[in-house]
Nucleic acid binder design. Structure first.
Lengths: 234, 234
DNA sequence: AACTTTAAATGTCAAATTTACAATTATTTT
DNA sequence: AAAATAATTGTAAATTTGACATTTAAAGTT
């Protein structure tokens, strides 16, 4: 079979916007780019799509390469295709955003990428259009987390309601009423109270909760309204 | 400047899932593909991204080429990148879905593409992964229309509330209570009642409404909840 | 002119949800 | 034993939703 004639072929890359939560702030995992152009500059983790891969595979491979993690929550954000977004050569990038439990992350021994967590609000200047990607990813995160139980992906298996609230407050840069928040979250039926308490933060200690895996799967795409009127989001 | 070495370059296309509404059913605009492979088979309208174009431009150009319309509502759905989705040669496709007022559509004189509207429920077999694209577009349409004032893009400037309801019922393949529906829609404050009535459908006639353009722009991304519990959508 | 027909427009009440707001409790430290 | 701290829980008013039937405007018919 022949090929399509007279058409431009281009590189296709994936770039990952990797979010984490350290208990206080929303973080972004960035690397120092290891090759030209823009070598040594801060960048999203990315890579070219290989001959035998589809996009999800490329994104998962890229994420695993950096974090060592597999089975991480990830979804396609959008494709970025401005003709000159990469000055070297035309490269389409399909952006994926990922949510990981920051505690699961172990920096690769081989320090191959000089990766570093940055507070989202205080990230360095990024190469190409990566800042735009991060911006869109943040908007998407806010959008989806307002109506779906997404942010649990950023927490460890066991977490407390106050921890969850701090996370929501970090994502929306806003304060929520404790009573209403916990009622809302508990009313989803997704949480299972544990017998143990988290004792580091307070004298009284807060009960741990875990996700009810069955219900979590079942209701992941349901409209749960965690945040009312989450601003003017896309 | 040199190029990235040892990487696969590939074709990048855009494909448009074009929805219309004829007053009764949700429709899909398809073309008979004009070149090999799969020449003569039903297909989404698409085209290769050109050297100087970004993705939005390519999608808009493609849509205009088929419909003659400009300024149409369009948003990126997702990128499809399975290695063998096009048997001829590896081609990444970025899918866009568009909503057009079916009455605005005039088939191009040059009949270049043999385009045809199909009821969404009764569309023919499509080439490559286009059926999957349509399926995802429909899911996205249902998702977004449940919470944002999106479906107005499918209607003419003047429309009646019963017409709007029929549209919602077509999109969700469900019936809604007239009283609750009109209350919900009117409570958004987006509609301006006109003096004239639509007189073709009923003896009494239904008042026309228009969108309040200011409020429509302002609230387009707001969470308006047109449909409660719109099923288990993504 | 009165009556019939058809679809549009509108109202109400109960239930559920949301919002605003403060007191109590478990535990550690002093 | 008292103080301090953060977790947990309650309630009443307001708003929104859901279920349900009647009235109304206009055209057609007798």
């Amino acid at each position: 079979m022949t090929r399509y004639s007279r058409q431009t072929r281009m590189l296709v890359a994936v770039d990952c916007i990797i979010f984490g939560f350290d208990g206080q702030d929303l973080k972004l995992l960035l690397i120092k780019r290891g090759f030209e152009p823009e070598k040594g500059k801060w960048s999203l983790m990315g890579g070219f799509v290989q001959t035998d891969e589809d996009l999800e595979q490329a994104a998962a491979r890229t994420l695993t390469k950096l974090t060592g993690l597999e089975g991480v929550y990830m979804e396609q954000l959008t494709a970025f295709g401005s003709p000159n977004r990469d000055p070297m050569e035309r490269t389409l990038s399909v952006a994926y955003f990922a949510l990981i439990d920051i505690n699961q992350y172990k920096q690769q021994i081989t320090d191959e990428y000089k990766a570093e967590w940055f507070p989202l609000k205080d990230a360095p200047k990024l190469i190409f259009d990566h800042a735009k990607m991060v911006e869109e990813a943040q908007a998407r995160l806010r959008y989806k987390a307002a109506i779906h139980p997404l942010l649990f992906e950023l927490l460890p298996t066991r977490f407390t309601i106050p921890q969850l609230q701090i996370l929501f407050e970090a994502v929306y840069d806003a304060g929520f009423d404790k009573r209403n928040f916990s009622r809302k979250v508990l009313s989803t039926g997704l949480l299972v109270k544990q017998k143990e308490k988290e004792r580091a933060t307070s004298k009284r200690g807060a009960f741990y909760y875990k996700l009810d895996k069955r219900k979590y799967s079942a209701k992941f795409h349901a409209f749960l309204n965690f945040v009312s009127d989450p601003g003017n989001l896309k």
